[in-house]
Design a binder for these strands. Structure first.
Lengths: 229, 229
DNA sequence: GGTTTCACTTGATAATAGTCAAGCGTCGCG
DNA sequence: CGCGACGCTTGACTATTATCAAGTGAAACC
């Protein structure tokens, strides 16, 4: 059940890569892996937080639902990324729900086992802190964008993020359904759709799940433009 | 320069409380404390992150400024709270700027010294992770609120948060200027002002920096009401 | 004491995003 | 093949929030 590719992902993951192979094997085994269908829930908001998770393949979304049923996606994690360390760490309840957005394979690591390992190998603590720090930064970024950028700019910024290091003319594939991206960016699908239509004249084209950018620098300039100019 | 009250704050702070007194003394001394005026900057966005901070008294705001000059306040920390652990930990640059919003006294703890202490006493790592976990949760809360609540609801929710455990009829003092609160809640001062006027009939009154709530449960019901009902 | 400054409020108006609903294309399925 | 289901787009309209600007009151300063 744990393929060689899985082990590669584990060894490369930010949170476990500092663990010697033997310790890693002691922490995880076949039973730690769960295959989940699209739409299946890994844990509900409010469940006791006893483990954290690492995505081996697929995509898992973390979201919060308010009493009225509206959903806010906090983040979507892909292969090699870990989530819920913080909740597991505080030992209370998960403040979000986790649900697979495509068929996925997810490994879970129990709080107790991990705590024992950390006590015995402090370097793991550094890796965990680094991982949590990155999550913090991602959230700070998200807050800033929500407050400072218009819907059009958030969409443009999102596409730039997908480009990674590439600049100039770039073509790319959207990582998931547009309605999910819209929620992630804090807007409605209809607004997302219109935003794409509006940034078309920046040299951005999105057809189906394929996107192309004529020149990343033009898009970057648009994102950095503040409201009053 | 370090008063007995300061030591009490240090010993109670989430991040240092697990440190034995001797180790604490080794980490901090009078030179670690800085008094800063209102408006004075502790560090700029982009400065190399070599330390994290703990507020002894006063208030410090963390904010991001985009190229156009618009500001997004990420959080405001008060006495006993620590910030920038994550940035210090990643060792890159501060992704935000820190500025005193009132005259404050702030202690800074150097990355190198702390790393040595953590290596030697892993339990500190747990305390740091707990602290970072709490910050993560705060940010997740904030994102959810920005996405799911209207301006009026965010203001109501903010006031409820100030009530703490108290329920029923509560009177309280706003922690800082309304324009700062407005920014923190992701809205303009004018919108904040109007929001307060609108929630007046929920039994909420704000005059100057004094606020009173006739019945917290009515306000809570308003916050939990989703858009479509 | 008077003036300046600053934070806040309020009004009129504009921009932005949400709502509701219809229509379109694709995919899967009986 | 034809039928739905679903995700996306688009249009018309509404609601919410921002913008600009004027005005108020209180503290601060000479």
């Amino acid at each position: 059940m744990l393929t060689p590719e899985d082990w590669t992902i584990l060894r490369k993951s930010a949170i476990l890569r500092d663990l010697p192979a033997g310790d890693l094997a002691a922490l995880v085994d076949e039973r730690s892996v769960r295959s989940i269908e699209r739409g299946q829930v890994l844990f509900q908001q409010g469940d006791p937080a006893r483990a954290f998770f690492l995505v081996l393949s697929g995509q898992v979304k973390l979201s919060r639902v308010n009493p009225g049923g509206d959903e806010a996606i906090v983040h979507i994690y892909g292969s090699g990324e870990s989530f819920a360390e913080a909740a597991m760490f505080l030992g209370g309840r998960y403040p979000v729900a986790a649900e697979a957005v495509v068929a996925s394979r997810v490994m879970h690591i129990e709080s107790d086992a991990l705590r024992r390992k950390v006590a015995e190998r402090p370097e793991i603590a550094f890796a965990m802190m680094a991982s949590m720090s990155r999550h913090l930064k991602v959230l700070v970024d998200q807050i800033e964008k929500m407050k400072l950028l218009s819907a059009d700019q958030r969409v443009a910024e999102f596409l730039l993020g997908l480009c990674g290091e590439k600049t100039g003319a770039v073509t790319l594939t959207l990582p998931h359904e547009k309605s999910l991206i819209a929620n992630r960016l804090g807007m409605k699908p209809a607004t997302f759709s219109r935003a794409i239509a509006r940034i078309r004249d920046l040299g951005v084209d999105v057809t189906g799940n394929q996107a192309s950018i004529r020149d990343t620098s033009a898009v970057l300039a648009f994102v950095n433009r503040s409201a009053e100019e």
